[in-house]
Write a protein that binds this DNA or RNA. Structure first.
Lengths: 337, 337
DNA sequence: CTGAAAGCGCTTACAG
DNA sequence: CTGAAAGCGCTTACAG
């Protein structure tokens, strides 16, 4: 039961009660400078007394703008996505815009369905934070509304803006760190076939080659396989791993513990993404951090710019390495590479 | 750059192109049965060809409804909240409604600010999933729109609906489980002073008393204190703990590991809420599960009913115990209670 | 500074 | 089955 007595007051009711025209009420409530101070005060008072609230639909209808954007994420549960969303929200607040969050639930169909539903709210633009979204879908929605992608899809269609992290640089940081600790037999646990994961794997391979460690390149498909080799004490088993992302690193560490393989004692593990989880598990995971909130804020500002002048950009931000407890100096004598 | 050439087509453009009146187009696109099949087909074809999409603002303005609801959560990162949101979304989909998610970021001010912003979208109703929201705030918004609270705030104002889990029953399940495993010195790690946490603590105390274990009731404020006592081998140290929620359980287990206290060997730990995290950590945590999606769905259906007939309900759902690895039978001889 | 008027794009009776 | 008209609540020129 809401206590609205009859219908909500409109601009007309306020005008009548304040003894002015409705146009003047409109100007006053929007803070237009062309209204005498005392008149404005009287009108605002009346509006307050009547409990007047501007009708958003009427406003949007006549302005052709809703002052809102949709931010669509792959998975709400992921701290990664949530941080980006917070960056978008903070920048939106500065722009006086509302942000509507949509959750793709890690499912392409759900992602699309959700966006379609949210389009019915009449947003002014779209931010997509998802590796799930294919470029056809992105292109289709970019044709309807200004759109910015946070991340790195295969081939971003023209007309879509972009904010991404430098995956190549990030993985280099991880590999360099492990090498600096004395490791040579550094394996890689790859992620999905998505672009970010592919870029990270390629960077791993390239960086190893650059460091003269090409012979030690091992892309190992499953954590089990890797852990088994280490547990069995195989001569060429890896002493360190860089994972495509933190989830994989967490899973790996779990399996290592189960198999009695000490991390980082016998196996140093580096992650990527700096999820909350990476700091929560034991040992806390050394990982690559993307400036997620900054990425979200950049995305929203780019969207605002697109709304103003239609300009599209591709922005790249630089990741950093976060040192924690899952990596340590090599203890055994490694065979010289 | 979006490829809209000039302005978007309206119902009038479709009407002209199809050679009918605009009212007929309106009826046809909404699937009104009073339009001859072939006419409808022609109109729909034309609409498609022109890329016509109904303007949501105009529709909402004239209908006085937006077919959308806001669901406001305390913390998006929490799997608990996310599951409730998914329940709301699924039920909303059945009702042809869009759901707009707002994130309170575990901060009362942020929660309120976000809701206020999202009100500018003109939602038809509000679902609040938050212990943060005080009853004044709930009352205020419930006076503006139909509102349902998921959870259990102190004194829910009239006019707000409610869906909650039976915290009393849930904590009973946990305590009974530990007692069945042979534990007697069962401590409790309390949560915040929020209602759900208080109800759980009280249920712990009451259940212990019912089982004749009143003498063993120990509400211990910090995990450190508890772990220290166990590590020091104090004679009356707890052999089991039921925590007010999973976060506390995770923290406790982390500290226990750090202090060399084996879980569940020397200390059985039960959580509450069944967060994703509870299954991910080692040992996986025995916990109490709330039927979160069901709660979300109930909330939305109640909202839909309120929209239809203004009826408000208080619904209570029953939690269940999920057995995992953090609890085990008592090994030492316990002093008989 | 202030008011009368048109119009945003739709839906809803109301006549035919 | 179909069309002409009013109206949802606002904003925006346009006159005064």
């Amino acid at each position: 039961m809401n206590t609205q007595t009859g219908r909500r007051p409109t601009i007309l009711d306020v005008a009548a009660a304040a003894g002015v025209s409705k146009s003047l009420v409109s100007l006053a409530v929007r803070g237009d400078p062309g209204v005498r101070a005392e008149t404005r005060a009287r009108i605002l008072d009346t509006a307050d007394r009547l409990g007047y609230r501007s009708n958003p639909w009427a406003r949007s209808l006549v302005r052709g703008r809703s002052q809102s954007v949709v931010v669509l994420v792959d998975d709400l549960r992921s701290g990664y996505h949530t941080d980006v969303v917070h960056g978008v929200e903070d920048a939106a607040e500065e722009n006086g815009m509302a942000v509507v969050i949509g959750d793709g639930r890690r499912d392409r169909g759900a992602l699309r369905g959700r966006l379609e539903r949210l389009m019915s709210l009449g947003p002014d633009g779209i931010v997509i934070v998802s590796g799930q979204a294919d470029s056809a879908m992105i292109g289709e929605f970019a044709a309807r509304l200004p759109l910015v992608v946070v991340g790195r899809p295969v081939d971003l269609p023209d007309g879509a803006g972009q904010v991404s992290n430098d995956d190549r640089m990030g993985m280099r940081l991880a590999v360099h760190h492990l090498v600096a600790l004395g490791h040579r037999r550094i394996a890689h646990l790859p992620g999905s076939p998505r672009p970010a994961a592919v870029a990270r794997r390629e960077s791993y391979e390239r960086t190893m080659a650059e460091l003269g460690l090409g012979a030690h390149v091992r892309v190992i498909p499953t954590a089990t396989e890797l852990v088994d080799a280490v547990a069995a004490g195989e001569a060429d088993a890896a002493t360190a791993v860089c994972c495509a992302n933190d989830r994989i690193a967490v899973d790996l560490i779990g399996r290592a513990v189960d198999a009695g393989v000490d991390v980082p004692g016998r196996l140093s593990v580096a992650g990527y993404d700096n999820l909350d989880l990476a700091a929560q598990v034991r040992p806390a995971i050394t990982t690559v951090d993307q400036p997620r909130r900054a990425m979200g804020a950049l995305a929203l500002r780019q969207l605002a710019d697109m709304l103003a002048d239609g300009e599209t950009r591709r922005e790249v931000v630089t990741p950093t390495l976060v040192l924690r407890d899952s990596t340590s100096p090599l203890v055994e004598d490694p065979p010289i590479a």
